[in-house]
């Protein structure tokens, strides 16, 4: 049985809902750097809670990348501890594409089943438009680039920490 990758990066979103495809775009950028690294698992999911839990099982560091709409400037990105998702609710922020319940429930389910990774972070890229159609807005495209650079540095650092 192969060992679980040390780091898992999960992108959530729908490329046919414009900026909801931000997570997938970040993942593509990470693929160029970590695509052949067996210590890193890059996976695109729809946000369904069980799939999330099963995708991160065994990894010590997990990043979830999704588009968000929190009222902050378009194209900015923010990182939070995924176990603090309830705080996002209090501030009115929402993960784009209707995935928040899936992720929140995934954290709760993983807690009950003792499958919560030691480090579970969410990277949200502030989306400008979630209408039907393809292609990121210009602001989100720039946000994806910055978020990908940030995440490449974070994943590289995590790999140095055995």
């Amino acid at each position: 049985m192969t060992a679980a990758p040390q780091v898992t990066v999960i992108a959530i979103g729908n490329p046919y809902r414009r900026d909801d495809g931000a997570g997938g775009a970040v993942l593509t950028a990470l693929g160029a750097r970590f695509g052949d690294d067996e210590r890193v698992r890059l996976v695109e999911l729809d946000g369904e809670s069980v799939r999330l839990v099963q995708a991160w099982e065994g990894s010590t560091t997990v990043w979830i990348v999704d588009a968000v709409r929190s009222g902050r400037p378009f194209g900015s990105f923010h990182e939070i501890d995924a176990t603090c998702l309830a705080d996002l609710d209090d501030t009115g922020a929402r993960l784009g594409g209707g995935h928040l319940l899936g992720l929140g429930e995934a954290v709760e389910l993983a807690t009950v089943l003792e499958l919560l990774p030691p480090r579970l972070r969410v990277l949200g890229v502030e989306g400008e438009t979630f209408e039907n159609g393809e292609g990121l807005s210009e602001s989100t495209r720039r946000g994806v680039e910055s978020a990908a650079n940030f995440l490449i540095a974070e994943v590289s650092a995590a790999l140095l920490d055995p």
Binding site: V50, V53, E105, E108, L109, V112, L113
Partner: peptide, 16 residues
């Protein structure tokens, strides 16, 4: 389902 998993962990784990 989360509350169910807390009390019926073996069944939920089998399902998952």
């Amino acid at each position: 389902g989360i509350a169910l998993a807390a009390d019926h962990r073996a069944e939920v784990e089998r399902g998952l």
